[in-house]
Amino acid sequence: MSQTTSGLTPGITTPRAAAAVWVLLMAVVLQVSVLPHLAFRGVVADVVLLVVVAVGLRHGSEPAMVLGFAGGLLLDLVPPADHVAGRWALALLVAGYVAGRVSGRAGRAGRAGSPRWPVLLGTVAACSFVASSLFAVSGMVLRDPLVGVPALLETVLVAVLSDVLLGALLVPLVLALDQRLEPDRLPA
């Protein structure tokens, strides 16, 4: 705990940062090549967002924002993407901020310093909604795709639903990995 700067959120150490980057790179592969086969109405669960939310819940806004920016940038540049670069980066950055604000007491109230289920799922849903809508709105501002509002809302809702479903599985996994890397003392 020597590098920890706050009493409520554990610090980012080098092994943790390396693990986060590795998980992020894997998440992009998963999202681009594997999950489209399980897509519902073409909407693919946003694995990168889930990683960002997990980091935000455990470590606060700042690391989550940096990770969200990096992950979003990768999503903006990885092959099938053909939108203005920076849109996912901005969306995931804000999602990281939102997730980070939940950290602290609410984020460590459950077993082994993990958030309770309602908090976890609520955060995933909120972040997913914020990120998907922000991406859609930035597209409207930049006049990127010509999509009607109803179709847009439907896609955002399906995206939130699939993120919550996958998040229930994936976020605890990332949190457990983080905990395992360097077990903190349990909160008093």
Binding site: S61, M65, G107
Partner: peptide
């Protein structure tokens, strides 16, 4: 706890905007 430094938050958002503008 959990809140980012303002300077870093602003610089990240600006980086996004610069990228979008460039593209």
């Amino acid at each position: 706890p959990g809140t980012p430094r303002r300077s870093r938050a602003v610089s990240l958002v600006l980086a996004c905007l610069v990228l979008m503008t460039l593209d």
